[in-house]
């Protein structure tokens, strides 16, 4: 149960970070924390052999899912950081609360 608890706690810490941090890099890092938490939950739940049969239930399938998650996450981080660099170059802004031009 420790692994699942840690993953849930990590996910919630990430949520707090996304809500409170104002710098774009910080928000992206918090999103990484959230995603790592969800991956950890998947792996922790799929880990360990069944006490009776000794086989890992769905282990490989879960690992494949987590691998695909990593790919998506890496793509997300790359695009997010590219946006950060682009915004910082064009507007000189690196904080979320300063990006308010489309605010009504």
């Amino acid at each position: 149960m420790i692994g699942v608890l840690v993953s849930v706690a990590v996910f919630c810490i990430g949520v707090y970070g996304v809500l409170t941090r104002r710098d774009i890099v910080g928000v992206l890092a918090s999103i990484e924390v959230m995603l790592a938490g969800s991956m950890l939950a998947l792996v922790a739940m799929a880990s360990g052999a069944d006490s009776v049969t000794g086989v890992r239930p769905l282990g490989q399938s879960i690992e494949a899912v987590v691998l695909l998650l990593m790919v998506i996450d890496a793509a997300e981080a790359a695009v997010g950081l590219a946006l950060l660099v682009s915004v910082a170059r064009r507007r000189g802004v690196t904080r979320i609360d300063e990006l308010q031009e489309v605010k009504g």
């Binding site: 692994g3 699942v4 922790a44 880990s47 360990g48 006490s51 890992r56 490989q60």
Partner: peptide, 12 residues
């Protein structure tokens, strides 16, 4: 959800 991790997970 029961976490069946018993201590020594076999390497996948």
């Amino acid at each position: 959800v029961s976490n069946r991790f018993t201590g020594s997970a076999p390497e996948s």
